[in-house]
Design a protein around this nucleic acid. Structure first.
Length: 272
DNA sequence: AGTGCGACCCGAACGC
DNA sequence: TGCGTTCGGGTCGCAC
């Protein structure tokens, strides 16, 4: 599923393709993708030119002339580029056509993805971006910041790391990888984490997510995040997804369980 | 305020 | 083989 590295990868891909293009027309075929009023969304985008693209948490933020278009891929959202003469396919729910007669199609089998059009200057101060915590590369992400955020949490550390208001961008897969690299059991209560462990979590998050970004993200199942985007990080995963696998450290059989309703993989020997 | 859970979706995997 | 059922995943909104 797209987590921060995949979102960064898609953002870079979009940058190469759509910067400088002006929106001619927007078609929405599944209303729930759009946060807010659909007709207002369409009207606000027409005539806007794409200036720059970045990410905030797992959101792609596309800055336009006066607006910001934000997109969340959720489970399987992806962007395809087609000639506008090609008929809409089954899972294409939003089609943005540019004045140069090209288009960008939001394809999402699960229909879980989200898009919103917000005023450019305020986009970081409005929901949903205003609720997000620190990026993993933010200099303010220190062991004491993390410790303070975890101090009042009784949930498992695995669940706390998925809380986007603390560190934003970690999803279910990298969560398992980060805790494995940090030798921390995912079931440990968040408020039991000490300063050295908080330090290890932050350092390993940086190492793992940076490496995943370098490798173009993780491609699992048939998932691709955008046209021609295939990550390679799936070959680097130590624990997540290895159902019958063994620990790459000690050879112990990995535990496959659920934590906070999420599929979780860990080594009972290496992660205390 | 923190926590837990249903809802949103539908293809794949599973059970009979 | 073919059918029906269950599952999973990120986030929001609601109830406790």
């Amino acid at each position: 599923m797209p987590e921060k590295p995949e979102v960064i990868t898609v953002s870079k891909t979009l940058e190469k393709i759509i910067i400088g293009k002006t929106i001619k027309k927007v078609d929405v075929y599944w209303d729930n993708i759009i946060i807010g009023d659909k007709d207002e969304f369409k009207k606000s985008l027409v005539g806007e030119r794409i200036e720059s693209i970045t990410t905030r948490g797992k959101w792609i933020v596309i800055f336009l002339t006066t607006k910001a278009l934000i997109c969340h891929l959720r489970m399987e959202g992806k962007f395809f580029f087609r000639d506008p003469s090609i008929p809409k396919e089954k899972h294409e729910h939003v089609i943005i056509t540019f004045i140069d007669n090209t288009d960008m199609r939001f394809n999402d089998v699960r229909k879980f993805g989200k898009m919103a059009c917000l005023p450019k200057e305020e986009v970081y101060n409005l929901k949903p971006l205003s609720d997000l915590g620190l990026e993993y590369y933010d200099k303010s992400l220190t062991p004491s910041y993390l410790l303070e955020a975890l101090r009042k949490k009784k949930l498992p550390i695995k669940t706390a790391l998925l809380d986007q208001s603390i560190i934003t961008g970690i999803g279910n897969i990298y969560d398992d990888e980060i805790l494995f690299a940090s030798h921390i059991n995912p079931l440990r209560k968040a408020d039991s984490i000490n300063i050295d462990e908080a330090d290890a979590i932050i350092k390993n998050t940086k190492i793992i997510l940076d490496k995943a970004v370098t490798m173009g993200g993780t491609t699992i199942k048939s998932f691709t995040s955008a046209e021609g985007v295939h990550g390679l990080f799936q070959n680097e995963l130590s624990v997540h997804g290895k159902k019958d696998g063994t620990c790459p450290n000690c050879g112990e059989k990995l535990i496959v369980t659920k934590v906070g309703g999420r599929g979780t993989y860990y080594c009972p020997k290496c992660q205390k």
